[in-house]
Design a protein around this nucleic acid. Sequence first.
DNA 1: ACCTGAACACCGTTCAAGT
DNA 2: ACCTGAACACCGTTCAAGT
Lengths: 214, 214
Amino acid sequence: MARPRTPLLSRERIVVAALRLIDDEGLDALSTRRLATELSVSGPSLYNHFATKDELLDAVVDSVIGEVDLSMFGAAGAPWPEALYDWARSYRAALAAHPNIVPVLAQGPGRRPNALRLADAVFGHLVDAGWPRGQATRIGALMRYFVTGSALASFAAGFPADAEVYDAADYPHLGEAHRLAGHRGAVDEGAFETGLEALLEGLALRYARLPERA
Amino acid sequence: MARPRTPLLSRERIVVAALRLIDDEGLDALSTRRLATELSVSGPSLYNHFATKDELLDAVVDSVIGEVDLSMFGAAGAPWPEALYDWARSYRAALAAHPNIVPVLAQGPGRRPNALRLADAVFGHLVDAGWPRGQATRIGALMRYFVTGSALASFAAGFPADAEVYDAADYPHLGEAHRLAGHRGAVDEGAFETGLEALLEGLALRYARLPERA
DNA sequence: ACCTGAACACCGTTCAAGT
DNA sequence: ACCTGAACACCGTTCAAGT
């Protein structure tokens, strides 16, 4: 075939197919050859659009971050606790839809534009709300810890549904743990919600203690 | 050589070498062949001790979890907020010493004995302290979210030290972000500490509101 | 510019063979 | 029981060749 008159591939098409493969079969299932097959193309073709597999992964990650709602930040934004609450929920929803890619994304914004935009919006909003810059940085960090941690893997699904695992002699309090996986959604969302509320209440206490507020 | 009179390998020796390789060069650097070379042995030899690479990774993960201090839990344990505080710090320290393996470990306890022991100790302590079982489960989950999220990757180091990245037109509040990587330790530990305190203060508020406490 | 097949240096894992 | 080399079906990436 050689060069077709209209390109078979585009960065966009590759990114979409890669994310689907990662979602359906995990990060390990994403090989350049497998992805190429999925796109009805030969392996090396991808290298006309991305220099390396890592560059492709970066693009996939940034497309996921692009789904996070940032409209609650900025000049006409909400008070910081509400803004942080709404943002954290949107952030978690975007990530939890693609848990297999969270370990890659958690490596930090790097040079990815959507990730930098997100960091910029959160930090700017906190500083405008009166948080000292050092504290605003830490709040951005700690919120990311909590959200990525919650999206990385289901807590409930980490416990095998097989009751035999939980020998009462070894684990006296885990007698009901085999039921956890069955309530996966409720447990994980409940834990996220509880943690988010606790975190924001704790931060509100700290905000009230801030000395230099006008 | 064939079978030597004293074994060249043991699960213990393999696990230690694997963890060092992961710490030094990342999860991707751990290949069975590379690890075998490191142990002065041929690739397939490892399969006399572990059925698959995944089983080996599981053993590595559980050895890391085994470093977490659980002595603050149980009958003679501390009040729950102090116990949780001390445990979270020990948990984070153990994980942050081996960030490259956190994505594997975050998949949940599975059948790993040290991970199950940890879950058992936390849950048991919270229930004994008067938390309803459902809430105790959620607290175990949310603490794990926060700790694994904080150990997965440095927040500060995720921002490139190259000032050119932060174009003021695109990211108006990130003018100082290139300095973050240089203060990596202080930023990440400060964020963890702030988040942990906020979380525990928020949970204490919720505990005080619990209806059925005697 | 954008695709191809061939090639290189790797992978995880199986298996028959050796002691 | 515990090690070996050979082999299988994979990897990411490079490169010369085609249009």
